[in-house]
């Protein structure tokens, strides 16, 4: 399948420079420099504990960085709560364990944030929510509770919930890792569809097939550092660093 690259613009969506983060004394992220353009699709991979999840969680301030700067959509992340709330409403995030709100129906999960954060009227919010649920192909589950859905369906609702805020950037944190094998495809298909529509995406994932198919760039992290980044074809065919080679042999080897 031919990838569409026409979406990438010169506009910078995320600019991270010399960013460092510690958990107590543990140096999780070291001198991270990353520039993401609007429309770009990035896959972040690496062994567990390499800091890849922490990196994308810093982008919407679920984790606080201690040094360096992160500028999202022209707004710098500081301790200013207003900036944080603004960035969070522009950046959607999907989690490994879905984190749907179990006391609300699928539809209410989707309409809640637009109604309270964007102050969208209920009718309009419902229309947007149904549109997004149709996009992830589960409009018929709108009035069920998350606990009544399968893992794959829940994850697609979680994607729809983020999309309802009309985010400019989407972060995916190992969204298929907690799923049964037969459900991975339905979630990946949704993500591929989103990528083709030109959404700016950063995906932490081990799905190398997905990386090949949609990513504009693959970033490999180890020990809290960006070790290597490249276009997917080159990255998989000719990994430069030994750590990348080892990692690829481990996950592609079986």
């Amino acid at each position: 399948m031919e990838k569409t690259k026409i979406n990438i613009t010169d506009e910078i969506a995320i600019h991270i420079s010399d960013m460092n983060k510690w958990f107590g004394n543990f140096h999780v992220l070291r001198d991270i420099n990353l520039e993401v353009r609007s429309g770009e699709r990035i896959v972040v991979c690496g062994p567990s504990g390499s800091g890849k999840s922490t990196l994308i969680r810093c982008i919407n301030r679920l984790e606080e960085h201690q040094k360096g700067s992160i500028i999202v959509d022209g707004t710098e992340l500081t301790t200013d709560l207003k900036n944080i709330d603004k960035i969070r409403s522009e950046v959607g995030m999907v989690f490994q364990h879905f984190n749907l709100f179990p006391h609300l129906t699928t539809l209410e999960n989707c309409t809640l944030a637009p109604m309270w954060v964007r102050e969208t009227p209920e009718k309009e919010a419902t229309e947007i929510a149904m549109e997004m649920l149709e996009k992830v192909k589960i409009p018929e589950q709108a009035h069920k509770y998350p606990g009544q859905l399968s893992g794959g369906q829940q994850q697609r609702v979680a994607i729809a919930r983020s999309l309802c805020m009309k985010p400019r950037i989407m972060l995916f944190d190992e969204v298929t890792s907690a799923l049964d094998p037969e459900m991975i495809k339905e979630v990946l298909d949704t993500m591929i569809q989103l990528a083709e529509e030109g959404m700016t995406m950063i995906c932490v994932t081990h799905e190398m097939g997905f990386a090949r198919q949609v990513a504009d760039r693959v970033i490999f992290m180890d020990d809290g550092q960006i070790v290597e980044q490249n276009e997917p074809e080159e990255f998989f065919k000719n990994p430069k660093s030994d750590r990348t080679k080892l990692f690829l042999s481990q996950i592609l080897g079986h």
Binding site: D85, R88, S89, M93, F95, H97, N99, A113, R161, M165
Partner: peptide, 15 residues
């Protein structure tokens, strides 16, 4: 409550 509930609501921009 799982920590994920706090994170999910924060990531949607809720105060």
């Amino acid at each position: 409550l799982p920590l994920g509930q706090h994170e999910a609501s924060a990531s949607l921009g809720l105060t």
